[in-house]
Amino acid sequence: MSSNGIRVATLDDIPVGEGIAIDKSTTGTEDDIALLRDDDGSVYALDDTCPHEIASLAEGWVEDGYVECPMHSSKFCLKSGEVQCLPATQNTRTHRVEVRDGQVFVFPNEAP
Rank of each mutant, 00 (worst) to 15 (best):
E63H: 14
E82F: 03
Q84N: 07
S80V: 05
E59F: 04
Q84V: 06
V83C: 15
Q84F: 08
D64H: 11
V67N: 03
S56A: 14
A58M: 01
S73I: 01
K79Y: 03
K79V: 04
M71E: 15
K79S: 06
E68S: 04
C85S: 11
S80T: 15
E63M: 11
E63Q: 14
Y66D: 10
P70A: 01
G65C: 10
Y66N: 12
V62Q: 10
P70L: 01
E59V: 00
P70H: 01
G81H: 14
V67W: 04
Q84I: 05
A58W: 03
G60L: 06
W61C: 03
D64M: 10
E59R: 03
G60Y: 05
G81K: 12
Q84W: 08
F76G: 00
V62D: 13
L78H: 08
C85I: 07
S74Y: 11
G60K: 03
E63N: 14
S73V: 01
E82L: 05
E59W: 02
G81D: 15
K75D: 05
C69G: 02
G81L: 14
Y66I: 08
L57Q: 08
P70Y: 02
G60V: 05
V83F: 13
L57N: 10
L57H: 11
V67R: 02
K79I: 03
Y66H: 12
C77E: 11
D64G: 09
V83N: 12
E82Y: 06
C85T: 11
L78I: 09
G81P: 11
S56G: 13
G65M: 05
K79T: 05
E68M: 06
H72D: 10
C69W: 00
E63S: 15
C85P: 10
H72R: 11
S80P: 10
C77A: 09
L57P: 13
S74M: 08
K75C: 14
S73C: 04
H72T: 07
W61L: 08
C77F: 04
Y66R: 12
M71K: 15
Y66K: 13
V83P: 11
S73Q: 04
S56N: 14
E59D: 12
E68T: 06
Q84P: 05
E59G: 02
S56F: 15
C77P: 02
E82T: 02
L57T: 08
M71Y: 15
K75N: 09
C77Y: 03
L78W: 08
W61H: 06
W61F: 08
L78V: 12
E82V: 03
E82W: 02
K79R: 10
G81C: 15
K79Q: 09
E68P: 03
P70R: 01
P70V: 01
E82N: 09
D64W: 10
E82A: 09
P70Q: 01
E82S: 07
M71A: 15
L57K: 05
P70M: 01
S74K: 06
C69N: 00
W61D: 06
V62E: 13
L78M: 12
F76V: 00
G81V: 14
F76D: 00
E63I: 11
P70T: 00
D64V: 04
S80N: 10
C85H: 07
A58Y: 03
L78G: 09
M71R: 15
V83D: 10
